[in-house]
Design a protein around this nucleic acid. Structure first.
Lengths: 353, 353
DNA sequence: TTGAAAGCGCTACCAG
DNA sequence: CTGGTAGCGCTTTCAA
C-alpha cells in the first residue's frame, strides 16, 4: 500500500521515516545509532524512543556497504562428528557474539576442499575467516590476503604458508605422552594416526616417536587410522591387536579414536589398562565417563579461541593485518585410568628432554 | 592510490571496473551474473572471463540491499553439548548450503533467552530463522511476522503460538517405549525428565505414562532431571535407585541423559539390563557403542531437516509465508541391548492403542 | 540486447 | 550539534 513494490511485504522501517516523523534529518537519525557520533543526548533519546515505537533498527546491510565492515566472521568446519569440534564452535560462538559480531557457519562436505567454498565467503565480504579441521591452499590464501581478509587456521597450520594459525603444541603433547608411558614402564608402544598428512597428526606422531627414541626405545608400531573417527580408531586397534601381540600401549591421535580403540580392545577380550594402556588427545567430555576414564592431553580450547580472537582483533576495533605466525599453546596431560603402571616400584623419573 | 579512501585496503573489484575494461556498461556486467537476465551469451562469456581474470565477484551485500533477500538463514541453538545438536547442525548446514544460502549461527548463552538475540538477527535482515532447543516468546514471534521473516521451531513447539514447528512425534515415541517395556514384562517403570517445561520433554512423558495406564500399569516414579545433560541423567538415576529399589526400568528423556543414567546404575553395582532396563530418545552415535548398546527412539533428523527446508521454501525461490503448522514426524524404536525380557516365555502382544 | 539513470538504506563529509 | 549532499555496489526500470 505504502510502497508499490510488494514482491515481498517487508515492513522495513527506514531511518528516513523515523526522521520525517520527528522533523529531523535522516543523518541525525543515523547519528543516534552511532556511538562515536556527535549528537545531543536529548536528540538521541528522542530518536531512540521514536525508533522503538516504530520498530526501527538500522539496516546493517546498508551500513556495511559503506563502512566496508560486515561484522561477520566466517567459521569453516569440516567435521562436527568429532565431539571436539562442537566444543570449539561453542566457545567460538560465545567469543564472536560477545564482541558484537556474527558467525557465518560453513561446513565442508566430506571429500570437498575449503577452496571450493571460499568464493561464497568472499562474496559476503566477511571481516575474517577462521578455518578449523581443514587446510587452505596457498592460492586461496593469496586471494584472501589480496582482498584484505584475515585468515586464521585453527588446530592446524600449513608449513610454509603465510597464514596465521593457532594450535595446541602437538609436538610437546606427543612428547608428554611418551614420557608418561615411559614413566610407567611401557616399552612397546604403538601410535594410531588420524588423517595422516595434517600437522595435527604429524606433530603428535613426531613428538611421540622422537621422545620415545630419546628415552631409548623405538616406536613399536605405527598404524594408519585414516581419519579422526571412532570407527577408524576401532579398526586400527583391531588390526594392531591382531598383528602385535606384545603391545603394551597405544597412543591415539585423538580421543574419539581412542574411545573406538578401547572398545576394540575390549571386544578382543583384553583389558584396558591391564593388557594395553591407552592414551588419547583432546579431552572431550566422553573421556571422563566411567566406562572409559581416558588418560589424555587436554587441548586448551578456551585459550586457543581467545588467541584466535586476539589475532583477529575481535576486541579492538581496528583491523590490522594479523601476523602470519603459528601460535602454539601448551596442552596438559590429564591422568585418568587407562595407563597402567607396569613397574614394580614407583614411577621412573623422566630424564630431561 | 586508486582511491583516496584507504582506511582499510580492500581491493574490491567492482562491476564498474569490469565494465570499463570491456567497454560495456555496468548494467551489462550485472546482467552477466543474473541468470534470468536477457544478455547475449557471447557478451556474458566475455564478462565472466574478464571477471575471473580481475578477480571480480558480485558484492552480495549490495545486491541484497536491492533484492531484499540476503540468502542468509539464521540458525539459533542453545546447546551444543548434547551430541544430538551437532548432528542437527551438520544436516542443516548441508541443506542450507546446497540450496545456495548461508547459515548464520547463533548460540544462546546458558540462562539467556532467544528474545535477547533476535534483534541482532533482525538487523541482518536474514531470510528466515530456525530455532532449535529453545523457544520464542509470542511478542518476538509477532515481530518476526510483522517483518515478514519466516520462523521455524525445530524439535520444540509452543502451544498456541502461531509459529511453524517441526518435531519428532514425541507422544508417539513415548507410547512406543511404554509398549516395548510392557511387551517385555516391565511393570515398574520410571521416567526421567529433561527440562521439565518444554514440549519435547512433556510429550515424551505424557505419551509414556498415558500408554502405560492404557496397558494397566501406573508410572512407578517420575524423576526430574532438570536439563538434557549427562550429569542430570546420572544424578536422577542415582536418586531413583536410592529411593525405589523395586524399579525394573527407566525411560530417559534423551540419550545423553540415558548414558549418564547407565553409568549411575553401574556405579551402584547394578546391571543394565538385568537389574534395570534403560531406554533413551534421539539415537545419537554414542548409543550404538558397545559399552552402552542403548535401546532408544531414533529421531528422523534428515526428514526433520528436509521438512524444515520445505517450510522455508529453501528450494523454490518464492518466499511464501510458511503455514503455522506443527509438523510431526515419526521416530523409530531402535532395539539394542538395554531392555531385558522379563517374561518367561515370548513377548506379550501389545493391545491396540 | 544494451545503456542511462534512479535508487536500495545507510554513512561520511561539508557547511553552517 | 545539525542538515544537506554524495555515493557505497548493485539491480531494475525505461528507452533506444
Amino acid at each position: 500500500m505504502r510502497s508499490k513494490r510488494n514482491k515481498r511485504i517487508i515492513r522495513g522501517v527506514t531511518a528516513r521515516q523515523v526522521a520525517k516523523r520527528l522533523g529531523l534529518s535522516q543523518s541525525t537519525v543515523s547519528r543516534a545509532f552511532t556511538h562515536s557520533a556527535s549528537i545531543h543526548p536529548k536528540t538521541r533519546e528522542r530518536v531512540v524512543r521514536a525508533a522503538n515505537s516504530l520498530g526501527y533498527q538500522p539496516n546493517i546491510i546498508a551500513r556495511s556497504l559503506i563502512t566496508k565492515r560486515t561484522n561477520i566472521i566466517a567459521v569453516v568446519m569440516a567435521n562436527l562428528t568429532d565431539p571436539f569440534y562442537p566444543l570449539v564452535l561453542e566457545r567460538l560462538a560465545q567469543r564472536i557474539q560477545s564482541s558484537g559480531r556474527q558467525l557465518l557457519f560453513f561446513m565442508i562436505p566430506p571429500g570437498r576442499h575449503v577452496d571450493e567454498v571460499l568464493p561464497s565467503l568472499l562474496q559476503y565480504k566477511v571481516d575474517a575467516i577462521l578455518i578449523t579441521s581443514a587446510t587452505v591452499s596457498s592460492r586461496m590464501a593469496a586471494v584472501c590476503v589480496a582482498e584484505g581478509i584475515p585468515v586464521v587456521l585453527f588446530n592446524r597450520y600449513v608449513p610454509g604458508l603465510k597464514v596465521a594459525a593457532v594450535c595446541c603444541d602437538n609436538v610437546a603433547g606427543g612428547r608428554a605422552v611418551a614420557d608418561h608411558l615411559w614413566n610407567r614402564g611401557h616399552v612397546r608402544s604403538a601410535f594410531v594416526s588420524g588423517e595422516s598428512d595434517v600437522t595435527t597428526n604429524l606433530d603428535r606422531a613426531h613428538g611421540f616417536s622422537v621422545r620415545l627414541q630419546e628415552l631409548g626405545i623405538e616406536l613399536h608400531a605405527n598404524e594408519t587410522g585414516g581419519d579422526f573417527t571412532y570407527a577408524a580408531g576401532y579398526a586400527a586397534a583391531h588390526r594392531l591387536i591382531d598383528r602385535h601381540s606384545a603391545l603394551d600401549s597405544i597412543f591415539f591421535a585423538s580421543d574419539i579414536m581412542a574411545i573406538g580403540g578401547i572398545e576394540a580392545i575390549r571386544a578382543a577380550n583384553l583389558r584396558v589398562p591391564e593388557d594395553i594402556s591407552v592414551v588419547g588427545f583432546d579431552d572431550i567430555s566422553v573421556a571422563g565417563w566411567p566406562s572409559y576414564e581416558l588418560t589424555t592431553i587436554r587441548q586448551p580450547i578456551t585459550e586457543m579461541v581467545d588467541r584466535a580472537a586476539e589475532i583477529l582483533s575481535l576486541d579492538t576495533a581496528k583491523n590490522e593485518k594479523p601476523s602470519h605466525k603459528i601460535h602454539l599453546l601448551k596442552g596438559n596431560l590429564v591422568e585418568r585410568k587407562t595407563v597402567m603402571n607396569r613397574l614394580r616400584g614407583s614411577y621412573k623419573t623422566v630424564p630431561p628432554a
